[in-house]
């Protein structure tokens, strides 16, 4: 393999600035699909709070903290922000009933949970009307290409081309604690390919699949809860 081109530090900085501008304007290709299944009517009244919980069972698939944070951020802003209870606070408040081992897996388990001493009273006192269970993750599915970089006393440079596919597949199950039933399910599946060509400086053209999935899912959760009134 031939050596990559070597440029001075100043030249690299100039090229980096240009490529940063280009890469912020150009992103990788993505396809996005958001689907909703409604099972019951929903509605939010004053005093109804929501908690977004990530499924943390003992498997390898677990939503990232950044994804959970993004959903909470999206739902807590806007013209009519929801009254959101922070996940950690709620799980501590209800301890141990929402720990991974004991958390209800389906809405059918809610009546049994509420029979436990003190649980129904605590849920009522919390004001939480809806639990939104978020499950899923972002995975790199495929990739290829090669990219090599070198650095010397007078500068550095890279040459090559790489690409990778990412799949962000998430599902939100919305449970109504007043009626002890599932209100519906929303899923967001975003696939995208990121590219990184490098001629002296790598130019990352990133497909932000997780961010798109978060915004799509949060928007649909908001519509689901509000429009169902």
């Amino acid at each position: 393999m031939s050596d990559p081109a070597v440029y001075s530090s100043a030249a690299v900085c100039r090229i980096a600035a240009i490529t940063l501008c280009v890469s912020t304007l150009v992103a990788g290709c993505m396809t996005s699909r958001v689907e909703e299944i409604r099972q019951t009517a929903t509605g939010i009244t004053a005093g109804d709070a929501i908690v977004i919980l990530t499924r943390r069972d003992h498997t390898e698939i677990e939503p990232e903290e950044s994804f959970h944070g993004c959903i909470e951020k999206q739902l807590s802003r806007g013209q009519k922000p929801f009254d959101l209870r922070p996940q950690a606070e709620f799980v501590d408040y209800m301890f141990p009933w929402f720990e991974p081992r004991l958390a209800p897996a389906t809405p059918d388990a809610l009546p049994e949970l509420l029979k436990q001493p003190g649980v129904a009273e605590k849920i009522t006192a919390s004001g939480v009307r809806y639990i939104v269970w978020v499950d899923g993750t972002t995975e790199v599915m495929d990739g290829g290409g090669s990219l090599s970089c070198t650095a010397g006393p007078t500068g550095a440079g890279c040459f090559g081309f790489t690409w990778w596919d990412k799949d962000s597949d998430y599902e939100a199950s919305i449970w109504d604690l007043h009626n002890l039933e599932s209100a519906g399910t929303i899923s967001a599946d975003v696939e995208g390919t990121s590219y990184m060509p490098a001629i002296v400086v790598p130019i990352p053209l990133i497909a932000r699949t997780q961010s798109v999935a978060c915004k799509g899912l949060a928007r649909q959760i908001e519509r689901f809860l509000v429009a169902g009134q």
């Binding site: 408040y93 209800m94 301890f95 009933w97 436990q116 001493p117 003190g118 649980v119 605590k122």
Partner: peptide
């Protein structure tokens, strides 16, 4: 060496 931090309060369980 890295000492693993185990800080934080544990919540009270809701049990009879």
């Amino acid at each position: 060496n890295i000492s693993v931090p185990l800080k934080g309060q544990f919540p009270e369980p809701i049990v009879g």
